[in-house]
């Protein structure tokens, strides 16, 4: 299929992009990597009047580590993240996650800003932002706005951004040295959107968790930073504790039904992921067998 006719403007600067957005409002769409926007346009699911192409704004591309903060420009492509030594050193969870994003051809064009602004509840990077405690930086007519990740995602394809704002960067605290992570998703095929996924970051001390952040995705209308993780922190992990945490997780989930899974299946898989995550992070194979998911 072909997209409906649309106007196209290549932004020459962030200011220029913001000007175009304030003139055209919701009739305009930002084009960065185009990996979600263009298929939707070709299917005529959306028909923006104007595409504001920000892909050439080089100032929005790149990764900087300074004073304990990793700043990732919004136009940094998935492929850039995957081969970045800074990401490998300071946000290794993100590297594991990006390897699960679609296929190389898509990772070569898709951008982190595009993925976060698109806010597909089944995509990997939004959940990572929650787990890593990211701050999302947006620029709009009235200047810069810093939004905590847990306030950024508000629904299916919905974020806290206004139509006049441009997501310019994300900031992540540098992952502490003794921290460890786990990333896994269940997808029917490599590169598909996850049926359920988990991005976890933890500090392990004396065989238990001193800190544990569990960012689930595809378990509701937005990524979920599970409160039930707290049930596993500063306690001796036993099968009973894990079962209790799994049960608490169940209460937090509000999974949707789609082609691939019923809500019941998503709940089951989320609990399996929780169990496997704890097993992997603590290297405790005994836990896997004893837990009823």
């Amino acid at each position: 299929m072909k997209a409906s006719a649309f106007a196209y403007a290549r932004a020459t600067s962030v200011e220029n992009a913001l000007d175009l957005l304030s003139v055209h409002g919701e009739a305009a769409k930002l084009l960065s990597g185009g990996q979600s926007l263009l298929p939707a346009m070709n299917l005529r699911l959306i028909a923006p009047e104007l595409l504001v192409d920000v892909s050439q704004l080089v100032e929005l591309r790149g990764i900087v580590v300074k004073e304990g903060v990793v700043t990732i420009g919004a136009l940094t492509r998935h492929a850039d993240l995957l081969k970045s030594p800074e990401i490998a050193a300071h946000a290794p969870l993100l590297m594991d996650a990006v390897a699960h994003v679609a296929h190389p051809a898509i990772r070569n064009r898709g951008t982190i800003g595009g993925s976060l602004a698109h806010a597909d509840p089944a995509s990997e990077l939004p959940a990572c932002m929650l787990t890593l405690g990211a701050t999302i930086i947006a620029r709009g007519p009235s200047g810069e706005r810093r939004i905590a990740a847990n306030e950024f995602f508000v629904g299916i394809y919905e974020t806290a951004l206004t139509p006049q704002e441009l997501l310019v960067a994300v900031e992540l605290p540098v992952t502490p040295i003794n921290s460890t992570h786990f990333f896994h998703e269940f997808a029917r095929r490599h590169g598909d959107y996850a049926i359920v996924g988990l991005a976890a970051q933890a500090s392990v001390k004396d065989g238990g968790f001193a800190d544990l952040r569990l960012g689930f995705f595809a378990v509701g209308d937005r990524p979920l930073l599970a409160n039930s993780a707290s049930k596993l922190v500063d306690v001796v992990i036993t099968s009973a504790v894990l079962t209790e945490a799994a049960s608490a997780l169940d209460d937090e989930l509000d999974p949707l039904e789609d082609q691939q899974a019923t809500p019941a299946m998503r709940r089951l898989l989320a609990k399996v992921l929780l169990t496997r995550c704890v097993f992997a992070l603590l290297a405790r194979p005994d836990l896997c067998a004893g837990v009823s998911a």
Partner: peptide, 28 residues
């Protein structure tokens, strides 16, 4: 393992695209 044209009870084909209709791919 993968391929199925999913119709709803009203006769609507609900997965008429390459994202929802799963063809076998080399990875699997």
């Amino acid at each position: 393992l993968f391929e199925k044209c999913v119709y709803d009870e009203r006769g609507q084909l609900t997965n008429a695209n390459m994202a929802d209709y799963l063809v076998p791919m080399s990875g699997e």
